[in-house]
């Protein structure tokens, strides 16, 4: 089957739409989670949502809706525990996570379903989404994206400094719960794409990648959303175009592609930061005394290989930990 034929198949088009919206929504919430240093929150909510899916299987209702409900409950509970500031809040969260996963597996068994039926939620099954599922995904993802972008100034302030935000008159508790609920919703949105166990990757990895290269919050958010979309669409396409017979699952492919993006970006980011540090202008105070360098082996210039750093009205060449400033025929130590 040619690529053109493949992409004209309805199930593939549905999968592409679902991937697009998931890729946009998950990193949008993920940015705020990372900003609050709660990068693993998505993981926790994913575990909790397993119970939700199992409840859906047991009661014969749509697992998507039961997962949303249970994940939101879990999110609010986590927020309450966090707000109470229990010293062992960390442990309480862990209990909730494991409870969610164990409960889910247990209830699935009770429902008389095999682990296989749970598996499509654990690891994703984007190519089997129905038209209704796609509509739900679009609706929920659009809700997440508009909230994350529209309320960006408020969510940024609350995530940056809660106390300041409170004195600024923001209802911090409302925004905290809002972020938790958005996280829960996007976990469920991403459930069909990458699966509950890998959800957090799509929320966190694009953010980690984009912040290698960015300095402002807005560009981090925008770039994370772009990277998330690239990874989820790219991963799906790679999986679909894999040679006939090879069983390449879209969920893990998307996550690995996203991670590959991080692996490629990280050294670039490290190099850019290093270069920015080297080239940052020196404070323009005049040197303490006029000190001429020892006999100098070569002339500094654009091609000498030593970093030229602005220092007031001239440049200093960084040479073996010294700063050499051209002065007439010799160099001064600055």
């Amino acid at each position: 089957m040619s690529a053109a034929e493949l992409f004209s198949l309805p199930f593939m088009q549905r999968a592409l739409i679902a991937a697009l919206f998931t890729g946009l929504a998950a990193p949008a919430v993920g940015t705020y989670l990372v900003q609050r240093r709660l990068a693993l929150m998505g993981d926790g909510l994913g575990h909790v949502a397993v119970t939700g899916v199992a409840v859906g299987l047991l009661t014969g209702t749509s697992p998507t809706w039961t997962a949303v409900l249970v994940a939101i409950l879990g999110a609010v509970l986590i927020e309450v525990i966090r707000e109470r500031g229990h010293t062992n809040g960390d442990v309480a969260l862990a209990l909730l996570f494991y409870g969610g996963l164990a409960g889910g597996v247990l209830i699935t068994g009770l429902a008389g379903q095999s682990a296989a039926s749970l598996q499509q939620y654990l690891f994703g099954s984007i190519t089997t989404v129905s038209a209704t599922d796609v509509l739900i995904t679009i609706g929920l993802a659009a809700l997440v994206i508009t909230t994350c972008v529209g309320l960006a100034p408020q969510l940024f302030a609350v995530s940056q400094d809660q106390e300041f935000a409170r004195v600024a008159g923001l209802n911090v508790r409302f925004y905290n719960v809002l972020v938790a609920v958005l996280a829960a919703v996007s976990v469920t949105v991403a459930m069909r794409t990458v699966g509950l166990l890998l959800v957090s990757a799509l929320m966190v990895v694009p953010v980690a990648t984009s912040q290698q290269l960015t300095r402002s919050f807005r560009t981090t958010l925008g770039a994370a959303m772009a990277l998330g979309t690239l990874a989820s669409l790219g991963g799906l396409v790679i999986a679909a175009l894999a040679p006939f017979g090879a069983n390449v699952q879209p969920g893990p492919t998307i996550v690995l592609l996203s991670l590959a993006g991080f692996v490629v970006t990280w050294p670039i980011g490290a190099w850019l930061r290093h270069r920015a540090r080297i080239n940052e202008p020196f404070a323009s105070d005049p040197p303490i005394e006029h000190q001429v360098t020892d006999e100098h082996p070569h002339d500094h210039g654009p091609d000498c290989g030593h970093a030229a750093v602005e220092h007031g009205d001239h440049v200093d060449y960084v040479h073996d930990g010294h700063r050499h400033a051209p002065h007439g025929r010799h160099y001064d130590e600055h």
Partner: peptide, 11 residues
Amino acid sequence: ATSGVPASVWE
């Protein structure tokens, strides 16, 4: 004044 995500001074 830092958090988990880069933010510019202006922001």
